[in-house]
């Protein structure tokens, strides 16, 4: 099925959804959101694209393989536990650092965010892997 409306919408919505998923990922620590939902949105962006253009074309337009994305996510999630060990704490202890303190751009980053990034990739990769193989049938 080829729908010109869906194709145009998908082409413009994909980057938008990806940016939105990053916003959801970042705000996740204290507000609704997080790696899991962000990952789902990231995956959904590609699924929408695949619905409009087909799986083969979507895979051409991505520079990563869903399985590798999942594995990368798992790796990032494990690595996020390691800085705590360097600081002498127990594994997975959160370490936080605030950039630009007391300015308008105050930015609080920490290892839980890295863990969330890992979840983000793992969920996105898994979702795409499953959906692509179902849609290929």
């Amino acid at each position: 099925m080829e729908s010109i409306i869906l194709q145009i919408a998908a082409r413009h919505l994909r980057p938008l959804l990806i940016v939105l998923s990053l916003v959801v990922l970042y705000r996740g620590h204290n507000e609704p959101g997080g790696g899991f939902i962000g990952g789902l949105m990231f995956g959904a962006a590609y699924i929408l694209y695949a619905m409009a253009f087909g799986v083969a074309k979507t895979q051409e337009s991505t520079f990563f393989n869903p399985i590798n994305l999942t594995a990368l996510g798992l790796l990032i999630a494990v690595v996020s536990g390691l800085p705590a060990l360097l600081l002498g704490d127990s594994f997975m202890t959160g370490a936080w650092y605030t950039f630009f303190k007391q300015t308008a751009f105050e930015l609080k980053l920490g290892t839980p965010l890295i863990f969330d990034v890992g979840v983000y990739f793992a969920v996105a990769g898994m979702l795409m892997l499953v959906m692509f193989s179902i849609m290929e049938e």
């Binding site: 590798n68 999942t70 594995a71 990368l72 798992l74 536990g81 594994f91 997975m92």
Partner: peptide
Amino acid sequence: VLPIILPLLIMVVLIF
């Protein structure tokens, strides 16, 4: 924690 994270890391290497 090694009994849990080691297999996970091994799994990641094996997937790649």
